[in-house]
Design a protein around this nucleic acid. Structure first.
Lengths: 339, 339
DNA sequence: TGCCGTTATGTTAACGCAAACATAGTATCC
DNA sequence: GGATACTATGTTTGCGTTAACATAACGGCA
């Protein structure tokens, strides 16, 4: 059936078989009007017979469009980014776009520039930036991206730039207030890396919420999102003599590590220490004990970012704005009323 | 400095500025010989001045090469695939390739075909397939991929196809034998979805290892890799009257859910039941108790697959073979000698 | 001196496609 | 009945790049 004729099939081949011009085939392929039903059928038939597939390079050379978008991310080993990237791809596909990606190790102009080069430079129509750390201003990004439209995910709340964010201040307030409502007054924190917008916002909100309640903030140590850093964080707190009845961890993995460390120190959860996390990863409900946390809707984050980007591609005059999503408090068994 | 002249910079622009032909600029860009030092410098200077960047579409139209590879995967919400994809991208970048990807929901010819279309069809030079479930034969894949070279990850051990795999049979044997050595005779299993090659291999190896030890296999229930399914699995086992002193879970997440469920049933780990997992996700060391498991080197899997693919692209006559990696037993505190 | 190989550069064509323009037939209106 | 749309098709051109071929200058060598 499909004898490998080793040459690729072009518009011209289809045109010959269907006894029309290449342009007419192009019209059929691109769903243009002004092709008679009869001709259209003949062409479609020929396309099927030859298993013709348009050459993207040729097409984008002439249209200046590739129908590919790029994702630049810090990686997706973490649950959040993985979730986002997955849904970006899914939504992009539904909107007719393919997805390429490039990871960067640190946030700098050069790193972004390199990533764009890897993505094939002008061979992408737009860009989603999952770059949740500080270091490069929006103005710099505009310059680096050089006319390629882009949408950012998870940057600072209130920034005037095309972006989709979760109000992490609000999320952190939810868990902190929950602990206050349970009667806790000695509340420590294991924060995320403070050069991350999200970690910074959660930390500031933790501080502000405590102050608003007239409570002195407990010690805070900085982690790196890993369970291990949560584990180490507790050791640091305890060896520095911190006394606390509740702990705010900036994500679920660090909460896991922290709970492990607390247990090593013969502290029970939630009897001796209440612990809250952040993210609500699927495993959090099965931690020991099941973790009280804040759910972030990474799915919506991914979907909305690419929707926005596609809007931007179709109409470059779409006004800049920031879509804000709100996290949801999830109460489980790792927190308890103080006695 | 960079007045937006709104037109993109082409070879011709650079050529004019450097007072040479476009072809000479091309030669400089592609590092061809036979360009005098003097000219080369002038051209490089002009490239820098204009911030010229080659148009990939035009280039690949004529070279038939895009220097982009595609990844087709079941998603990377799980730790393993995320890890692999990350390292594929990293290694690809180092070898001069960009990466596009597409996720599929189920394993079928059509799904793969669609994914390839999304990736821009012929605009990728090669393909890495992370498609660990059964359903499409290698011959079918060759047909679907239509002359695009590809490497598969994590398929059946012993398949004659370009692939990189982990010997999961061996991994499962390690943990099962460990339990036998600890004196356990009643060993149940929560397997992965049995249409996954890896899950199937682990299951078969669990059976074979027990049989080799002259031990009757306990009950086995099938999970879906999630903690929730591990939790449900234990309920199923217990309500069906299974009695066991040890449990083999086919991944760490299911082990987590299982441990939670066991505790709900007032069974202590490892005093009443020993539990082993599979994968060694970073959190496993912080489970309660820290999980005995088997480490899979997803990093190496990702790296080697793309290395292999690039070899294949550079020399299509690279012989087909299967690279096999071996997992490593990691003993922690979730297993114990039977009394 | 004349021939040849090496080095350095320019010219032409082609990659596969779609935009723009050109042509021709057919229906529609007053 | 002729002007005016609309429909259906074909022809030409150019997107930006590199391969292939052409040219020219230069040095070495017999």
């Amino acid at each position: 059936m499909e004898l490998s004729d080793s040459k690729r099939v072009t518009l011209e081949d289809v045109a010959q078989l269907a006894r029309v011009s290449a342009q007419t085939v192009s019209r059929v392929v691109n769903d243009h009007p002004y092709v008679s039903d009869n001709t259209r059928q003949r062409v479609l038939e020929a396309i099927r017979t030859l298993d013709y597939r348009p050459n993207r390079a040729a097409r984008s050379l002439v249209t200046q469009r590739s129908y590919m978008v790029g994702i630049i991310t810090f990686g997706f080993l973490h649950y959040g980014p993985a979730q986002m990237v997955t849904h970006i791809e899914r939504t992009a596909k539904a909107r007719g776009y393919g997805v390429a990606f490039s990871t960067i190790d640190q946030m700098s102009r050069d790193a972004i520039r390199d990533a764009i080069d890897v993505l094939g430079d002008r061979s992408i129509d737009g860009l989603v930036l999952i770059t949740p750390t500080m270091g490069v201003s929006h103005a710099e990004l505009v310059q680096v991206c050089d006319r390629v439209p882009f949408v950012q995910i998870d940057i600072e709340l209130g920034t005037q730039a095309p972006s989709v964010v979760i109000d992490q201040w609000h999320g952190s307030q939810l868990v902190t207030q929950h602990l206050i409502d349970l009667g806790h007054r000695d509340i420590c924190e294991i924060s995320g890396p403070l050069n991350w917008y999200g970690a910074h916002a959660r930390h500031q909100s933790w501080l502000a919420t405590l102050q608003a309640a007239g409570t002195e903030p407990g010690m805070s140590v900085e982690g790196d999102w890993t369970a291990q850093s949560g584990y180490n964080g507790i050791h640091n707190l305890l060896t520095h003599g911190a006394r606390f009845s509740a702990l705010v961890a900036a994500n679920d993995q660090m909460a896991l590590g922290a709970m492990r460390a607390l247990r090593v120190h013969h502290l029970h959860i939630p009897e001796d220490v209440s612990v809250v996390g952040f993210d609500d990863i699927p495993e959090a409900a099965y931690f020991e004990p099941p973790l009280t946390t804040v759910r972030q809707d990474f799915t919506a984050l991914g979907e909305q970012s690419i929707e926005y980007l596609v809007d931007l591609l179709n109409d470059p005059d779409t006004p800049d704005h920031q879509r804000v999503l709100y996290p949801k408090f999830i109460e489980r068994s790792s927190t308890r009323q103080i006695e």
